[in-house]
């Protein structure tokens, strides 16, 4: 399997006067699972459609392994962009429908696709338009996984899937990534449910990059400090506060930024409790402040 590294270089994307992406620069390492997180309208799908060469940047350039991707036949073939497609006019049945990716995707694995169809319990004898939304999403997941494209993008591909189906989807991403590593980009709202999948996390908001880093580092940068209100206030002075909650004399403050060894000792002396912050909370509060 080849590697595919993505570089987004000062990219701006405009729709008329509206700027969906604003001078965004970002580098996505190959063969890792990237979680792309952003609120509605943050520009996630815009960014992904640039990577997949569905559209052209207004300014800047998207590179795959150093080559601009737009209208680059070799690079475009390496990208699978899976999103919630409208299947209401798709009268074909699944086996016929899958002939197309099998024929065009160089790394498509039919055996694996058949295995996934069974795992998701997808009916092979019904027109796709007649399947439920969750089943259509599962079909998308099958296409995305079985194509084994060096860059595989799932843009909220889980929509409509029930919890067991989503679980299968996540398990298969991890299992297949272990055997056939590739660059995954998973865009999602369901941060708390999917965060364990991510090697890397990219958060964007209002068309700008908020942060990009590996999951461990980012998760360790958030901390919640709980204790007596005045002591907590004194401790967090000078730190970047994301959120505060107060109950009687006890206060819990969410801070962002690595706490030094010194800070941690100091907290212990003051009898303050330091706890982790979930990626979900970080996402909520990091993207909230801008609004």
């Amino acid at each position: 399997m080849m590697e595919a590294h993505i570089k987004i270089d000062n990219v701006t994307l405009k729709f008329g006067k509206f700027e969906a992406l604003k001078d965004l620069s970002l580098s996505l390492e190959s063969n890792r699972i990237h979680g792309l997180i952003g609120r509605n309208g943050a520009g996630k799908t815009s960014l992904l459609s640039l990577i997949a060469a569905f559209r052209e940047t207004t300014e800047g350039q998207v590179f795959i392994d150093g080559e601009p991707v737009f209208e680059n036949a070799d690079k475009m073939l390496q990208v699978s962009f899976i999103y919630n497609k409208d299947y209401k006019e798709e009268y074909e049945k699944i086996p016929q429908f899958l002939e197309f990716p099998e024929y065009y995707r160089p790394s498509y694995d039919k055996e694996y696709a058949d295995y996934l169809l069974k795992r998701f319990k997808l009916p092979l004898d019904k027109p796709i338009s007649k399947l439920s939304k969750g089943m259509q999403s599962a079909l998308n997941a099958v296409i995305g996984l079985a194509s084994r494209s060096p860059i595989t993008i799932f843009d909220e591909a889980y929509v409509g899937m029930d919890a067991p189906a989503r679980e299968i989807f996540y398990q298969e991403i991890l299992a297949d990534q272990a055997k056939h590593p590739r660059t995954f980009i998973l865009s999602t709202h369901l941060v708390s449910e999917m965060d364990y999948l991510f090697d890397q996390v990219v958060i964007i908001d209002q068309g700008r990059l908020v942060l990009n880093g590996d999951y461990e580092t980012i998760a360790s940068r958030g901390a919640s400090i709980t204790g007596a209100a005045d002591q907590v206030d004194a401790f967090v002075a000078g730190l970047k506060v994301l959120n505060e909650q107060k109950l009687g004399g006890t206060k819990s403050v969410m801070v962002y930024g690595a706490l030094s060894e010194e800070d941690q000792q100091k907290a212990q002396q003051l009898g303050l409790e330091i706890g982790p912050v979930s990626l979900q909370d970080l996402f909520i509060h990091l993207t909230e402040e801008a609004h």
């Binding site: 997949a52 060469a53 569905f54 209208e71 680059n72 036949a73 475009m76 073939l77 390496q78 990208v79 699978s80 962009f81 197309f100 990716p101 065009y104 995707r105 494209s149």
Partner: peptide, 12 residues
Amino acid sequence: AYFVQHGISRKD
């Protein structure tokens, strides 16, 4: 759209 969605260039 179908072809381009499957990674085929507009030219091809």
